[in-house]
Amino acid sequence: MKYMLLMQFSEKNVDFPKLDEWKPEEIQAHIQFMKQTNAGLAAAGELVDAQGLAMPETARIVRSHSGGAPVITEGPFAESKEWVAGWWIVDCDSEQRAIEIAAAVSAAPGPGGRPLNMPIEVRQIMAAPPTEL
């Protein structure tokens, strides 16, 4: 079963300072943790894809516009308090395992080595074979 684990950054749901305020060794520990996590998932044969997204400064919001050109809103979205920071796609045996992986990445270390406890949204990907109805 394939699951997408969405790392949803949300200012109101986290209680750690912005990355800009972290100490160098805290940033390094965080990067190290993510690399090890991905290497572990790959070694277990569970990693399908893992991607980080560029920061919201470079984001664009596009909306089609009846009878006219599409409307494109350019960043920076100073007011945006929530954004998708990145995702993993894992292929694992059970939802239980997907939740375990999400819990592990949610515990990525932040300032002072404390776990960030970032919310990770676990969504099943619609890749299951159809059943005979």
Binding site: P24, E26, A54, T58
Partner: peptide
């Protein structure tokens, strides 16, 4: 905040953090 390269973002964030420290 503007790069699309993850290793580059790591590097630049570390530069900022080291100098700020």
């Amino acid at each position: 905040h503007r790069t699309a390269s993850l290793p580059e973002r790591h590097h630049l964030s570390l530069c900022a953090a080291r100098l700020a420290a």
